[in-house]
Amino acid sequence: MDYSEKVLDHFMNPRNIGKITNADVEATEGSPACGDQVTYYLKINEETLTIEDIKFLSYGCASNIATASITSELVKGKTLEEASNFTWKQIVESLDGLPSVKIHCSVLAVDALKSAVKKYQIEKGLRAAEPFNEKTVMQEMRSIIHSGAGDDIVTLNMVKSIEYQDGILTINLNISEKDVHKCTVVSEIKEHLSRFEEVKELNVRA
């Protein structure tokens, strides 16, 4: 599947590009090592709790730029609550589809947006920081896309079990030895979970 006209439009003419110097919150997801990264800058109305302005910077491929762009367009003017409920599937639909190998870009954009919203809410005391547990891990797993199947590894029943005790996190996967996307899945899991200071040791068994 090739890129849709909408993807190409947002790639060539990204909306809301740049930095907000006095942003109320900013959040980055992804890494240069993985080849894609998005940073969102949000200006939030403290009274109405709506996103008054949003800008982004991106290091990544055409779909990375396009998904970050359309996400910014869709959430501008929305409440934090509404922004939190956006899903990567909505982003994909808004772009008239993405090749399955590029679905992870939409996840990255939505994750970066949600991270920013969550960070703001915690900073302002609007929500409590959540304790790290197996539920947190499962939520993170929903952001890991199997690029061959074009869906997250929880939906695909690829997460066999999660064990977390005394800082040691073990994730057992149900993924074929010969699956060409196995390495990417494992490295993305490591990238996602190594950011939690509660994880002292991480074992991913595939």
Partner: peptide, 30 residues
């Protein structure tokens, strides 16, 4: 600081075919 698939796709829009070693242009994302 510039990603290869982005460069490749933008050049494609300008009618130029090139290749890149970026993970984003490979099926296995490596």
């Amino acid at each position: 600081n510039v990603e290869g698939e982005g460069m490749m796709m933008m050049l494609d829009m300008f009618g130029i075919n090139v290749a890149t070693g970026s993970a984003c242009s490979s099926q296995g994302l490596q």
